[in-house]
């Protein structure tokens, strides 16, 4: 599913969070938007997914204008957001949480159960804890559940908002391996991340956002070696004369 964002603006009162962002994600690609906290990445995803209404601009899915459509209407069309901070209902069981994903995509019961089997085969840890309350999962498991709930909606475009936030290094590795695997299987993914190095390691293309604007874009491999990016986001500086990394 092809996503195209054109001159998107998002404001909260006087705060202009997104100021004219245009980007595209082609079918089957894994694209990442990186940038610091407060750069407007999350606001951009919220506007794309209909969680907030953009001030102006246009969002299209396979050419259809979906600007400002509420999220619950976009899920059945295949657009699924895995929100920052998981946003799980603590008191619901893992199984119920997954069924919410199927319900949002308006699946029949038979479809929902088939989808459940498919999703659980990817997340054996969740399969063991179907009756456990979501609130009792560890951080890494909770993030997996949020991702699994999204996959239960049978997405054709997956929007990931800071999936690695607050996770232990090992959980981050597992998570990115999963995202990478989904991309390899042909799912279209737009991932917003602060974890620049690892995001660029699995993405094909990247955009760098700062103060509500896109300031840099390119192939992920090129961005990972871009001097400016390396200096400001990867926390390493290069010695100008020798070109060697210094701490």
């Amino acid at each position: 599913m092809r996503l195209s964002i054109d001159e998107l603006h998002v404001s909260y009162g006087k705060v202009r969070a997104v100021q004219g962002v245009s980007l595209g994600v082609d079918t089957g690609r894994l694209v990442t938007v990186i940038g610091t906290n407060g750069a407007g990445k999350s606001s951009m995803l919220h506007a794309v997914s209909g969680m907030v209404r953009p001030t102006s601009g246009k969002v299209t899915l396979d050419g259809d204008d979906i600007t400002g459509k509420p999220y619950h209407k976009l899920v059945p069309r295949g657009l699924v957001l895995v929100p920052e901070g998981r946003q799980l209902v603590a008191g619901l069981s893992v199984e119920d949480t997954l069924m919410l994903g199927a319900a949002a995509a308006r699946m029949t019961n038979a479809e929902a159960h088939r989808q459940m089997d498919d999703v659980l085969s990817r997340f054996p840890i969740l399969a063991e804890r179907l009756k456990e309350r979501a609130g009792l999962l560890s951080g890494g498991q909770a993030q997996m559940l949020a991702l699994a709930r999204g996959l239960m909606s049978a997405p054709r475009l997956l929007l990931l908002d800071e999936p690695s936030l607050g996770l232990a290094p090992r959980a981050v590795r597992d998570l990115f391996a999963m995202v990478s695997e989904l991309a390899r299987q042909g799912l279209t993914i737009l991932m917003v991340e602060q974890n620049v190095r690892q995001a660029l390691a699995i993405a094909e293309y990247g955009y760098v956002m700062d103060s509500g604007r896109i300031i840099l874009e390119g192939q992920a491999g090129e961005l990972a070696t871009n001097d400016m990016l390396v200096a400001s986001y990867l926390g390493v500086a290069r010695d100008e004369k020798t070109g060697e990394e210094t701490a």
């Binding site: 509420p70 946003q87 994903g101 319900a103």
Partner: peptide, 24 residues
């Protein structure tokens, strides 16, 4: 029922319910 599940989700956490794709 699905309606019951969605209502329980909305009752417990309306914000998370909205992120779960529920038409509140």
């Amino acid at each position: 029922t699905r309606f019951g599940l969605q209502l329980r989700a909305v009752s417990q956490n309306p914000v998370a319910a909205r992120y779960s794709g529920i038409n509140i």
